[in-house]
């Protein structure tokens, strides 16, 4: 598949602080790529370099296989860290200005305003907007030139649950259009909910990258509840179980490689037991994340 972005050994030092350390990334067309990392791990700095506002200390990157230039940036829609607009201009005027810079048709403005549901407030000055409206206007502005790539940096930061849900809904809608999205976030579930691929940064170092679907692969854990006195014994008799734990009212069965919940279900049924509760625990990105970070701590001592 076509490579949209690739970085080679991209590095940024702020004085003695190494904010981004020899970063190699690859994003392919159509991916929703999550950049995950705690605050201060270098996400915004990386995106700043990719968008020409932070001068890299070392390394290279290319968009669509071409060296960076301001022409390429016009084809990318990006909002870094906070929405930035002229406070004394209305939402509409801000977008008109941006259309001028991006050489985008002004006829796109009503469309993007509609998408983020800001049409009825477009004439109001930007400084009168609520935080959620500002974030939505930022997304609208990023979509203005019908970009091939969309870059969003903590787009739900500081929003209430409603606002967060709205923004995620918008992102998903955009993703189904086949756009490539790069989403930086410190929130695991956000990445898990919207991304197809992700990379984990820690103190400027890349500690993991791969598809989100791979997360949760490996052995499965199944929660079981059934009305039977000797359930524990029965479960131990299941050849697919590698261990069994009792948690509150339920048993958690850790499955061996190659066994799944349906195998357990069939086994119980054959024994004449109908489970009232049988759920595969999806291994959350959070656990994976913590595991990866723990591994990184042990394996590679982080150079600073």
């Amino acid at each position: 598949m076509e490579t949209v972005l690739s970085t080679q050994q991209l590095t940024k030092n702020f004085g003695r602080l190494c904010a981004v350390n020899h970063l190699d990334l690859e994003v392919k067309r159509g991916e929703v790529f999550g950049m995950l990392g705690p605050n201060g791990s270098g996400k915004t700095t990386t995106l700043g370099m990719l968008m020409g506002v932070v001068n890299p200390t070392a390394g290279n990157f290319s968009w669509f296989g071409q060296p960076p230039s301001h022409h390429i940036r016009k084809k990318i829609g990006a909002v870094l860290e906070h929405p930035i607009f002229y406070p004394y201009l209305s939402g509409q005027k801000n977008l008109e200005l941006m259309a001028l810079i991006k050489e985008a048709p002004v006829t796109n403005i009503p469309k993007v305003l509609e998408l983020v549901e800001l049409s009825d407030r477009k004439g109001d000055k930007y400084k009168t907007y609520s935080l959620g409206m500002k974030q939505r206007l930022a997304i609208a502005s990023a979509l203005l030139n019908d970009p091939i790539v969309l870059i969003l940096d903590e787009p739900t930061n500081g929003l209430d649950p409603m606002g967060i849900a709205e923004i995620r809904e918008i992102i998903k809608r955009i993703a189904t259009d086949g756009k490539t999205i790069i989403l930086a976030s410190h929130m695991l579930d956000e990445v898990q909910k919207v991304c197809s691929h992700f990379a984990i940064l820690r103190k400027g170092n890349l500690v993991h990258s791969g598809p989100v679907d791979d997360v949760g692969k490996g052995e499965e854990q199944v929660e079981v509840v059934a009305f039977h006195d000797d359930l524990a014994l029965l479960l131990e008799g299941f050849m697919g179980a590698s261990s069994i734990k009792k948690e509150n009212h339920q048993y958690v069965v850790k499955m061996k490689e190659g066994f799944h919940s349906q195998d357990l279900n069939r086994y119980l049924f054959e024994k004449g037991i109908v489970a009232t509760h049988l759920v595969t625990q999806k291994k959350s990105l959070e656990k994976q994340f913590l595991e990866i970070l723990a591994e990184a701590d042990h394996a590679a001592p982080i150079k600073n």
Binding site: R73, K74, I84, Y86, K102
Partner: peptide, 13 residues
């Protein structure tokens, strides 16, 4: 307002 930053991001050199 940091709008210079957004101008550059949007594609001005």
């Amino acid at each position: 307002y940091r709008t210079i930053r957004q101008n550059i991001i949007d594609g001005l050199s």
